[in-house]
Amino acid sequence: MNSILEQLKQRRIALGLKQQDMQVLVGVSRQQYQRLESKGNPRLDTLELIALGLKADLMLIPREKLRDVQALLTGERLTEREHSELVDNPWKGLLDEE
């Protein structure tokens, strides 16, 4: 999976935005945004603000659910068993509860 910074860049490009457009959207100068995309390490509140400007949400996905989420996002077909388990209880294992 791409780093979160690469995902931000890909999302910005997909929306047809330039780095300088981020100043209008979220109040981050082109230089600040360029530095963020290239070197990273943004504060969480900055990251949330940028995601909002890119019409995106940040979320933590438990590793054991990552494949399911990726399959849903890419349209990948789950096996019949995986699909059945997900439909029966989409929250199973999310909080390490059985």
Rank of each mutant, 00 (worst) to 15 (best):
Q20F: 08
Y33I: 01
L86C: 09
E37V: 04
L47W: 08
N2P: 10
R30Q: 15
T46M: 10
L25R: 15
L47F: 12
Q32T: 12
E98K: 05
Q23N: 15
I50V: 15
E64P: 00
L54Y: 09
M1Q: 09
D96T: 11
S84I: 09
R77D: 14
E80L: 10
L95G: 06
K9G: 02
T74I: 04
Q23Y: 13
L78I: 11
W91M: 12
Q19P: 10
E64C: 03
T79W: 00
L86T: 04
L78A: 05
I13H: 01
I61W: 00
L17I: 05
G53Y: 04
L15Y: 05
L5H: 01
Q20E: 13
Q20A: 12
T46D: 08
E48P: 00
R35P: 02
V26L: 08
R67L: 04
D21W: 05
N89D: 15
I13P: 00
R81S: 15
Q32H: 11
Q32N: 13
R43F: 10
L52T: 13
L72N: 05
P42V: 03
K65T: 09
L72A: 14
A51L: 12
D88G: 01
R12W: 05
K65D: 09
G53M: 06
L17P: 05
H83T: 13
K9F: 02
P62A: 12
E85G: 03
S29P: 09
G27S: 08
L8H: 01
L73T: 11
L47A: 10
N2T: 06
N41K: 08
E97R: 02
G93W: 01
R81L: 15
L25P: 12
I13T: 11
A71V: 06
I4T: 09
L52N: 14
G40H: 03
G53V: 11
V26K: 08
E97L: 12
V69C: 06
R35K: 13
E48G: 02
Q34T: 14
Q7N: 06
T74L: 09
